[in-house]
């Protein structure tokens, strides 16, 4: 019974994953589970393979070895329908935003909604404007093109687009990089609100300790091509791996962690 429950709760299952580009090995023997309703944060130094791991989970790159299952389905067996239905349930925020440069802000967010072919334009309009309000973009920017936006605006609009279909599973690659601290805080609040309203599962990478502390249920640390720690924040901080002590140690870490209070 427990096993069945556990299997049902498993959203992503990564087993023995190896990733490499030519002779350059990026990830080695990665094992990782993501459970229903949790926020898993992946941390690691720059260039350690966080984005590569996310891309593997999305089926954008094929692993050199190993398997990835999302919603209980392997994503590399070539079945396009399975992959498609999985992708309809996911939202992705790419590190660089990846807005469609030929579409306005409004159309960027409306695109996934229109692709459903079940929503009428009135509904789409209201939903798009709601999403924009959610990420604190004023209505006057709706007709702008991505080239006319600031870096932080691109990030927030990309987030709005990732949430367009209210996905169950959200991949966020550095959601708060390029945002000012006030906006980072409101991002954290937004995610907390959404989690209260919906059963949202989030896989996120970040370098921002405040965001990490405020949102993460579990933290996975990538260093030297391996996952060196995968646990709740308290246990990860207790780990003595040099990267972890560097990352969470020092004044910067202490300042962020003092805010943790009971979560810790």
């Amino acid at each position: 019974m427990d096993i069945i429950m556990a299997a049902k709760n498993l959203i992503i299952e990564v087993k023995g994953l190896h990733a490499r580009f030519g002779a350059h090995v990026v990830l080695e023997n990665i094992n990782l589970n993501v459970h229903h309703g949790e926020v898993l944060t992946i941390v690691g130094s720059s260039g350690s393979g966080k984005t590569v791991l996310l891309r593997q989970m999305l089926g954008l790159d094929t692993p050199f070895r190993g398997t990835v299952q999302v919603f209980g389905q392997p994503i590399y067996n070539g079945n396009r329908d399975v992959l498609q239905s999985m992708r309809n349930r996911c939202g992705v925020l790419f590190q660089k935003g990846a807005l469609f440069s030929a579409l306005s802000v409004y159309d960027n967010i409306a695109l996934p909604m229109r692709e459903l072919h079940t929503l009428d334009e009135g509904m789409i309009h209201n939903l798009v404007m709601l999403k924009l309000k959610m990420v604190e973009i004023e209505a006057q920017h709706a007709n702008k093109m991505p080239a006319e936006l600031s870096g932080g605006m691109i990030k927030r609009i990309a987030l709005a687009r990732a949430m367009a279909l209210n996905p169950e599973l959200l991949f966020l690659d550095e959601p708060t990089s390029g945002l000012d601290p006030v906006l980072s805080d409101s991002f954290v609040k937004l995610i907390l609100t959404l989690r209260a309203e919906l059963a949202l599962t989030i896989v996120m990478t970040t370098h921002d300790l405040d965001t990490l502390v405020a949102l993460s249920d579990r933290v996975a640390v990538i260093a030297d091509q391996h996952i060196v720690a995968l646990d709740n924040l308290r246990n990860v901080i207790g780990n003595s791996h040099p990267f972890i002590t560097n990352f969470f140690g020092g004044d910067r870490g202490k300042r962020a962690l003092t805010g943790m209070g009971d979560n810790f």
Partner: peptide, 8 residues
């Protein structure tokens, strides 16, 4: 929902 801004 009460105050959805209209798109310009």
């Amino acid at each position: 929902l009460g105050n959805i801004p209209a798109a310009p």
